[in-house]
Amino acid sequence: MLNIKHIFFRELRSLFDSPVAYIVSVVFLGLLGWFFTSSLFLANVASLRTVFEMTPFFLLFFGPAMTMRLLSEEKKGGTLELLVTKPIMEYEIVVGKFLAAWMLFFATLLPTLVYFLTISFLGKIDMGPIIGGYIGLMLVGGVFLSLGVLGSSITENQIIAFIVSFLIVFVLFILDKILVYFPGDIATILEYLGVDYHFSNIARGVIDTRDLVYYFSMMGLALLVGTVMLEKRKW
């Protein structure tokens, strides 16, 4: 546990010391702010629906961008050799880095609370979907970021890491939108695998264990594969 903490804090510091974190956050918030304000007065409803609808879509790009360098840079620079020859397990490295990226995503979401404050002055808000929405966003973010860590673990090239992660999260994202092309049984399975399907449940304010199991097992699986990719050098 202690090792995870050390990796986490080093990574977090490195994220916030470099311009990457700020660029990603500012661009993300800029885009989201544009979509939020441009539709707010047209819809005339005091809700954060735009935030919850657009963020998973933006995360398709921003998730892989936040995570692409996490492991690939260590591979390329040779610092991975320093890390793994210390008394530390590979999974501790992977988990520590993933948590740092998750933290960055959390920090990026924080300023959107300003929207919440704004609309709370404008009208009566239903709290359930908002709390559920934020929890859901963190979970979707967790899945996308863990898959980003996985993409970063397979290569020392950041661009390849980005593209691979993007492809994986893109498939998960569109699964519940292409169900019409599949027969019933398969469609049910695919729907369950889709990230957005579970998100829409939680965003309604209903926190179901089935959805939580889905999110956490996706994260666990992605990080497990990422760990195996780091151990692959020993085969």
Binding site: R13, S14, D17, S18, G78, T79, E81, L82, T85
Partner: peptide, 15 residues
């Protein structure tokens, strides 16, 4: 028990 200096001395340049 080992102190290891790998080949090419990899370091975190941003620290």
């Amino acid at each position: 028990s080992i102190g290891y200096l790998p080949e090419h001395n990899p370091l975190y340049l941003d620290m």
